[in-house]
C-alpha cells in the first residue's frame, strides 16, 4: 500500500516537474535560421582554441549555458548521452559557458563528466548570435554550417535528439 502511494506521489511530482518546465521552454527557429552560423574562435577550457568553422561536415549543437543556470545543469547529462550516442555518426556538441570565470566551469565539467569541448563565451559572440540574453540557448547547425534551429530555455532532450537525427541523416 505504501509503495503504491509513494509511486502515486512520485508520479504527481514528476508530472508537476514536466508541466513546470514546459511553461518555461520556448523555441524560436526563425531567428538566424538557414543562415551560416557566425564563426568564432574562443579559448578552450583547458588549453588551445576552438574555431567553430573547423567543424564543417559535422552536425553541431552549440549550447550557451552557465554553471549556475538550473535548466542548463539539467540539460547537461542529456547532452553527454547524445554526444556518446551520435558522436560516431558526426555529432559534435560544443558548450559555450557564459560564466564570469572558468574555475566553476572546470569543476562542473569534471563533476558532470562532460565529453564535449567547452569554451568560455564572450558578449561579442552572444551578440553575433542575435543576443544571448537568457539561458540556456542552443543552436542546431547542419553539416554545411547553417543554423537549422534555435531552442530557448529548458528543452526536452527528445526535441534535440529528433533534430540531431534528422540532420545526421541528410
Amino acid at each position: 500500500m505504501g509503495f503504491v502511494v509513494g509511486l502515486a506521489v512520485a508520479g504527481v511530482l514528476a508530472g508537476l516537474y514536466f508541466y513546470h518546465h514546459s511553461r518555461g521552454a520556448r523555441s524560436n527557429s526563425v531567428v538566424l535560421q538557414h543562415r551560416v552560423a557566425p564563426d568564432f574562435t574562443l579559448p578552450l577550457l583547458e588549453s588551445g582554441q576552438l574555431r567553430l568553422s573547423s567543424y564543417r561536415g559535422k552536425v553541431v549543437l552549440l549550447d550557451f549555458w552557465a554553471t549556475w543556470c538550473v535548466p542548463c545543469r539539467e540539460e547537461t547529462p542529456h547532452f553527454v548521452e547524445l554526444q556518446q550516442k551520435y558522436g560516431d555518426q558526426g555529432l559534435q556538441i560544443i558548450g559555450v559557458s557564459m560564466d564570469d570565470s572558468p574555475d566553476p566551469v572546470r569543476t562542473f565539467v569534471q563533476q558532470f563528466r562532460v565529453n564535449y569541448p567547452v569554451v568560455m563565451g564572450t558578449a561579442d559572440v552572444g551578440s553575433a548570435y542575435g543576443g544571448v540574453l537568457g539561458l540556456p540557448i542552443a543552436f542546431l547547425i547542419d553539416r554545411e554550417g547553417r543554423i537549422q534551429a534555435k531552442h530557448m530555455g529548458a528543452t526536452d532532450a527528445s526535441v534535440f535528439e529528433k533534430g540531431i537525427a534528422s540532420l545526421l541523416a541528410q
Binding site: A123, G131, V132
Partner: peptide, 22 residues
C-alpha cells in the same frame, strides 16, 4: 546575473555586481 549578458544589453544606468548565486 551574468556579466556576458550584461555586456550585451542592460538597463541604462544599471551596474553589474555578479551572479548572486555564487
Amino acid at each position: 546575473g551574468s556579466h556576458n549578458l550584461f555586456l550585451q544589453a542592460h538597463i541604462p544606468g544599471s551596474e553589474y555586481v555578479g551572479a548572486a548565486s555564487t
